[in-house]
Every structure is written in structure tokens, then in C-alpha cells.
Design a protein around this nucleic acid. Sequence first.
DNA 1: TCGATAATCTCGATCGTCGAGAGACTATGG
DNA 2: CCATAGTCTCTCGACGATCGAGATTATCGA
Lengths: 154, 154
Amino acid sequence: MTEESARARQELALLLRRLNVELDAVGQRFADRHGLNRTDVRALVAIMDAARRGEALTAGRLGEAVDLRSASVTALVDRLERVGHVRRVRDPGDRRRVGLEMSESAMAAGAEHFGGLARDLSAAMEGYPDEELAVVRRWLEDMTAVITRHARGS
Amino acid sequence: MTEESARARQELALLLRRLNVELDAVGQRFADRHGLNRTDVRALVAIMDAARRGEALTAGRLGEAVDLRSASVTALVDRLERVGHVRRVRDPGDRRRVGLEMSESAMAAGAEHFGGLARDLSAAMEGYPDEELAVVRRWLEDMTAVITRHARGS
DNA sequence: TCGATAATCTCGATCGTCGAGAGACTATGG
DNA sequence: CCATAGTCTCTCGACGATCGAGATTATCGA
């Protein structure tokens, strides 16, 4: 058992890495298609996620989210604004702040690309009974916890 | 059922993306620790994977693996060689070729970082019976197939 | 021997990121 | 109501990673 299942566990870890590589490739493909770099995509995702939570990201928060200094954030938002994916909106309450809003075209492009993936993933899960999906979910949460621990401290 | 399980499937997709982000962060952490950038890490992984398969990567093949032009590969190998992670070894059979060998220190650093993660992941799977791991494996393979399709064609 | 081919490297240019610091604005204490 | 400290964004100059074009070196077939 230990022999066999140790190998099985190791293979699952490798499969996870493989999946990670492919998922990165999807992001890269989206970037290529729209003339963006990986940072730009990460930024758009961060802005979209924030919008989904009902918050409008400011330039500073975006910098934290994608781990860039303020100078880089300015350049990043400049790029995104120039191609029309994002609008700068000064906060009337605190005029130092610059809010970021995604344009409809960017929302549509993101939804088309990543929404399509989400739909296909969901469809591929059709055949799985709820109990199995529950197992997968628990496993994913466990693995994410371990990985997160490695990503932060050691 | 469709209502409930549709939401469950969507949550799994989000969980997968979250896991992807954290896994990237692990790579980023390794890069930071060793003064490397993401490309350098990808290159080291490619060289290590090739070594695991018993092949010694050439500069050209490395360029294909990490999708860089020859000029960038030269600079990349220069960086890795300068910090002692890689050696250039001219192929005696075909003297045009430049083989790449990882140094023992780089192997050890990689094994320590990613091997530690693999060990922890494996340990976190201890509690899962073989049948559940089999379900997870099938699910991962299915998802990877879908994602790979999106990464390549549409 | 010579041309065609292949693998790698050199050079100049471009682009993303950063550190330092300036400028605009807000909050707070006298 | 002003002075001052704190916050947020932007500008500037520099650096490093990547690229395209072309030079260099080695191999192979005629």
C-alpha cells in the first residue's frame, strides 16, 4: 500500500504542476491575443475580481495586488488606459485617489476568454456525482492550504 | 440539483484558479530567494525535467521550452552560469551544440524548495483512501485536458 | 572543395520595472 | 484657521530582460 499509494500521491503532485503550466499558458494566450503582457493580465484580473466584489480598485490597491511599486503602477495603468481597457476616475471624496474602472470591451473580452474556459470546465464536471466533487473540493482546499503555506513563510 | 451543483462546479473552478495563483507564488518565492527572475526558474525547471528524462538540454531546445529567441537564451544561460547554477558543455560529437548541465548546488536548492513542497503535499494526502485519490486523479486529468485545449487552439 | 544548413553568439533598440523624490490632497492638533 | 504630518499618485532617470538582424562557427552532402 505505502509503496503503491506513495507513487500515486507523487503523480498527483506532478499532475498539479502540469495543470499549473497549462493554466499559465491560457493566460499567456489571452495576453498575446490582446497585445498585453502578463502583468497587464494579472492587473485586469485583479480589477475584475474587485469589481465582482463591488469594490472599485484604486491605483495603490492594484499595486499591492500585483506587487508593483507606484511608478510601475502608473506605467501599467497608462498602458491599459491607452488601449481602452481601463478608465481612471478620480474619487470625488478623496481627490488624491484614482479609481480604476474596466471598460465594457475589456469586460467582454475577459468574459469571452475566461468565461469560455469556466464553462468548459463546468461541462467537464457534468459526469461527476456530487459526492465525488465534494472529495475533489476537500482535496483542492487541502492542497491549496499546503501550497499557500509554502508561498508565504516556509 | 442543477442549481446547487452548478454553483459547486463553479466554485471548484475558482478554487483551481486560486491554487494556480498560490503555486505561482511558490515559484516567485524561490526566484526571490535565489536572485532569479521567473524565466530563470522556468529554465531551471526545464533543465531539471530534461535531466530527469536522461537528456541533456541544448541551448536551442531550452529556447523552445521556455519560448525565447536565441539572443535571449544566450543572456539567460549567461545569467545562470554566472551564479553557478548551470554549466555549458560543448558536445564532443557535434561541436556546434552547447549542452547544459545543472550544478549540484542548483539541484540541491531545487530539491530543497520544491521537494519540500512535494513532501508536504504527499503528507497532506495521507488521509485520503486510494479510491478518493483515484477520483481526484481522474478529475485533474479531465480538467487538464480542457485547460490544455484552451491553451493551444480555442 | 564548396555551398547549404544548423546552432549559437553579438549588437543595438525597445519595453517593463524600480528607487527617489515632487506634487496634490486630506486629516489633525493647536 | 493655519501648520504640519501623512497619504496617494505621478515624473524622471536608470537598469535589466527581451527581441530582430546579422555575424560566426561547425557540420553535411555533392
